[in-house]
């Protein structure tokens, strides 16, 4: 129980610091929508993955109300997605591919650590490869959605928020 609390606390503090440090105020809407877009993905995917018993979460927040990993699905993945979208490089395809791969790799390593050292997540019929692939595509999906969404700025962007 202690190791799980430490894992949750450190991860949350770290991601909160990164968000605070690397979110420009003028892009707060983009950050928020990136957060919310990933929340939808992790919620639905998380429900499917847990329902199919591909992974289990012995120690979790809201233990009575859900068997899913609410902490990762509601806080960590959405926050990382906000950083991912805000700093997406406007460069060559290759750079963008590497950028997305880097994020997917970092997330996968974090999940791997969580699986290895804590009871927050345990793979049943799941692997690091699965995790990497699904993360990569979830990031790509949210990127396409946000690109479409912010093609035209909202009136508020002109008004300066």
């Amino acid at each position: 129980m202690v190791i799980e609390l430490i894992w949750i606390s450190i991860s949350t503090l770290l991601i909160a610091f990164l968000l605070w440090r690397f979110t420009p105020v003028e892009h707060i809407r983009k950050a928020m929508l990136s957060f919310l877009a990933m929340l939808t993905v992790t919620w639905s995917l998380g429900a499917v993955v847990t329902e199919l018993h591909l992974m289990v979460h012995p120690v979790r927040l809201f233990p009575e109300a859900t068997r899913m990993n609410f902490f990762a699905g509601f806080i960590i993945y959405p926050s990382i997605n906000a950083l991912y979208i805000l700093h997406y490089p406007n460069k060559s395809r290759m750079t963008q591919f590497l950028y997305t791969s880097m994020y997917a790799l970092v997330i996968t390593l974090w999940v791997h650590g969580m699986e290895r050292f804590t009871d927050l997540e345990k793979y049943v019929q799941w692997s690091t490869i699965h995790q990497f692939v699904i993360t990569f595509f979830a990031l790509g999906l949210s990127r396409s959605f946000l690109q479409w969404f912010f093609k035209k700025p909202f009136p508020s962007v002109r008004n300066g928020g």
Partner: peptide
């Protein structure tokens, strides 16, 4: 979806509401 998820989980966790028959009945209560 954000407040709905949090409040939905909270009321079930506190035993205020139950959804005896539901979708994803292993993953969520």
């Amino acid at each position: 979806q954000a407040p709905a998820w949090i409040f939905g989980l909270t009321v079930v966790e506190l035993g205020l509401l139950q959804y005896p028959i539901r979708f994803f009945d292993t993953a969520v209560s």
